[in-house]
């Protein structure tokens, strides 16, 4: 194969070529060369892959440090929140039925999502029940597998249509489907009438109530 004169290069037929390949005995090489070739080949492949994989594991590795350090900017349009993390539901206790009928109320909060911070957006819904001690709140997310729990007026209970979890108005489970009772949330009544709530979601399908931070 003389590169200087192209005409001399024979065009092999595929059959000839296949013959040549199979007939040819590869030379025996020392273990060291094979090992080195293999090892280096693996290293150059693994390095970019592992770097990428670590990047992909970011949610686990950076867990709890999701927010980079920096000063808070002013958010006059943000939600009203006290130092204990309670948000104002903008509901007065008098607006809730005195007989304890559950009322569903949307919860607004400032929500961090990767690079954005959404101000005053809906983050969930709660059932509010007025009782003699004040107000009880349940997260509407079913502790079973995360559907929304409805209130059934004609049975006076809470019912999840997905897998038929049922709870009484105290949030206690009435059948074995849900692993635990409904998730009660902390409530503060300020100035004797305004309802504030610490909104949290919890892990599904566990008998323990574990907050998702």
């Amino acid at each position: 194969m003389d590169s200087a004169s192209p005409d001399s290069t024979p065009i092999e037929s595929p059959a000839e070529r296949a013959d040549a390949t199979t007939a040819f005995e590869p030379p025996r090489r020392g273990f060291f060369v094979k090992f080195l070739a293999g090892a280096l080949g693996i290293i150059v492949g693994v390095v970019p892959f592992v770097t990428g994989l670590l990047f992909f594991l970011d949610p686990l590795i950076r867990d709890g440090k999701a927010t980079p350090k920096g000063q808070e900017g002013n958010n006059p349009e943000g939600v009203e929140k006290d130092e204990d993390g309670f948000v104002n539901l903008n509901v007065t206790i008098d607006a809730l039925p005195a007989d304890g009928t559950p009322q569903s109320v949307k919860v607004h909060d400032d929500k961090v999502d990767a690079w954005n911070k959404f101000l005053n957006v809906e983050v969930g819904t709660v059932w509010l029940l007025r009782n003699k001690d004040g107000v009880t709140a349940f997260n509407t997310v079913c502790p079973h597998l995360g559907c929304s729990v409805d209130y059934r007026q004609w049975k006076s209970d809470f019912y999840c249509p997905c897998h038929q979890s049922t709870f009484d108005l105290n949030g206690d489970k009435l059948n074995p489907t849900p692993p635990r009772s409904m998730d009660q949330l902390e409530v503060k009544v300020k100035d004797g009438k305004n309802v504030w709530l610490k909104f949290q979601n919890f892990r599904g399908a566990t008998s323990e109530k574990i907050a998702i931070s």
Binding site: P26, P27, V33, K34, A37, L40, G41, V44
Partner: peptide
Amino acid sequence: PETTFWPDQVLKDAVACL
């Protein structure tokens, strides 16, 4: 002498890639 891709040329390629 004639050789084959594995392992002689692979080693050189791998070093270059490195």
